[in-house]
Design a protein around this nucleic acid. Sequence first.
DNA 1: CGGAATTAAGAGTATTTTATCTTAAATTAG
DNA 2: CTAATTTAAGATAAAATACTCTTAATTCCG
Lengths: 145, 145
Amino acid sequence: MKVLSKVSEYGLRALLYMVAKRGGQEYVSIREMSERLDISFHFLTKILQMLTQANLLISYRGPNGGVAFKKPPEEIRLSEVVLILEGDDYFDKCLLGLPGCGDRQPCPMHQFWKEIKGSLKKEFDHTSLAEMGQIAVSRHLRLVP
Amino acid sequence: MKVLSKVSEYGLRALLYMVAKRGGQEYVSIREMSERLDISFHFLTKILQMLTQANLLISYRGPNGGVAFKKPPEEIRLSEVVLILEGDDYFDKCLLGLPGCGDRQPCPMHQFWKEIKGSLKKEFDHTSLAEMGQIAVSRHLRLVP
DNA sequence: CGGAATTAAGAGTATTTTATCTTAAATTAG
DNA sequence: CTAATTTAAGATAAAATACTCTTAATTCCG
């Protein structure tokens, strides 16, 4: 059950690293993250660029540069991150992949799947990056393979 | 939220077609399904082959051949189909894609994600192909794009 | 038996996703 | 101002997924 692409997996791991590091106050170097999390530097750069362009992070170039949260991680929901990295239609996809499927023209799985997606969205909606990061810090959990 | 590969999407659509057609009693031609469902014939053949090799279907060659259910669709669960087509570790994957993640070495999202996966598995476990097909038939829902 | 219909299987191609490489732009420190 | 450090952006490459083509094996019907 793989619901996230590598882009989101890496993006989330980086965000959690930032939260864990210093509560997301200061700029964190992408190079540092790529090394600590064992993610390709250039690939991670692009992912974080997406988050920067979506106004979730701000970036700064030059020595001591990096990325930082634009708003406190308490206010950033998992769903927000996922919608940015996976696309706005993330919670609208048909289980059977039928393009026309929706309330007006439902596939056989539509209602069933809609309910599951709904409850998942709800979970993602009230889970903040801060909470997630907290758990990681307090339990010394690992973000690295 | 794309949880299934094309393989599973196509496989499920074909199975639902078979249920809808005649309750899964007789052999249904793969060619017919590929045309009615607008799925590549050879690709679909391979997908149904996987289901045949997994003993969910039986196949018959020659004129009037095709595939049929080996056990009644009432007894086939959605989870069973998905495990065959996506792999046995389908419900065991880490949200962040970390290979070592598990109960012994949980990632920050492990517990959270484990619960969600659990309830999804439960849903998939007591949803039979027959139920799914029933809905499709009774409401004249479409399996085609 | 012989030809047509059908699934099985393997090789080959295309598309998408993931990852890398190169160069440019911004910032800092000396 | 210059050199070093860092993100931005675009081009390219590798890997995975999705799809196609060809040939073989099985079964039916005349």
